[in-house]
Computed example of a mutant assay.
Amino acid sequence: MTEAFNNMLKDFRARTYLSLMKFIRRTVVTKFQLRKEECSRWKIEIPPTVNKKIVEANVESRILQIVHSGEGEYELMGLTRAYTAKLNKKSYECGFWKISGVPCSHVLAGIRHILWPMWN
């Protein structure tokens, strides 16, 4: 990581701290502006990579068998393992949603079970 940072600085490394800090500030501001422009072209509210993960997890969630335990608690059985999800308490055994912020297939199966009566 240090090597990549030093490579980015190139000849600015030998300059004064003030000019080095100005260069770093300009680089960061430019990168933020480029990302802002990229985000403005999105057709949805969430990033495309996150949307792709949610769609993939949704497809995976369709093979899970759901056992509703009441009060927003579910046991979700997959091909190799069973997971518990307590949607009301935001407690999930696999922990993927808590770590990444993107719902996993287990949570999506529980959410679909809650919302299914509203869709039909």
Rank of each mutant, 00 (worst) to 15 (best):
V28D: 01
I99C: 08
N7P: 00
V28P: 06
G101H: 04
Y92V: 01
R112W: 07
E45S: 09
Y17H: 14
F12K: 15
T27G: 09
I54E: 05
T84E: 07
E37W: 10
M118W: 06
R15C: 10
S61I: 01
M21S: 14
V28A: 12
E45D: 12
A4S: 15
H106L: 03
K36R: 15
G78D: 02
F23N: 03
E45R: 10
K22L: 09
T2W: 12
C94F: 05
L108M: 05
H113Y: 07
M1N: 10
K52M: 10
M8A: 13
I66R: 03
R15I: 10
E37T: 09
E3D: 14
F32L: 15
A4K: 15
I63M: 14
H106N: 00
N58R: 12
E38H: 13
S40Y: 07
I66A: 01
C104I: 00
Y83M: 02
C94V: 05
N58S: 15
I54C: 04
G95K: 08
F96E: 06
G101K: 00
K31I: 06
I111K: 02
I66S: 03
Y17D: 14
K89N: 09
V50I: 09
P47S: 12
K36P: 00
W119D: 10
H68E: 11
R13D: 09
S40C: 11
R41V: 05
I114T: 07
R25T: 14
Y83N: 00
E93F: 03
R13M: 12
K86H: 12
L76W: 01
D11Y: 06
V55R: 13
K89R: 09
V55F: 11
R41M: 10
N88F: 09
R15D: 13
F23D: 01
Q33W: 09
K53Y: 06
Q65Y: 10
N51R: 14
Y74N: 02
P48D: 04
R35E: 13
N88A: 08
S61L: 04
S19I: 12
S69I: 05
T2D: 15
K52Q: 13
K90V: 07
V102E: 03
E93V: 03
A57R: 06
I46L: 11
L76H: 02
V55A: 13
L87Y: 01
R81W: 03
K98E: 11
T49V: 08
K89E: 14
Y83P: 00
Y83L: 02
I111W: 03
S100R: 07
A85N: 00
Q33D: 11
G95I: 07
F12W: 10
I46T: 07
K53T: 04
T2M: 15
L76G: 04
L76S: 01
R62T: 07
L9H: 03
H113N: 07
Y74I: 02
L115S: 06
K86N: 13
M77A: 13
T27Q: 08
M1L: 13
L87Q: 00
A14P: 00
M77E: 11
E37Y: 12
I66H: 00
E37N: 13
A14H: 08
S69K: 15
E75Y: 05
N58L: 14
H106D: 02
E3G: 14
T16P: 05
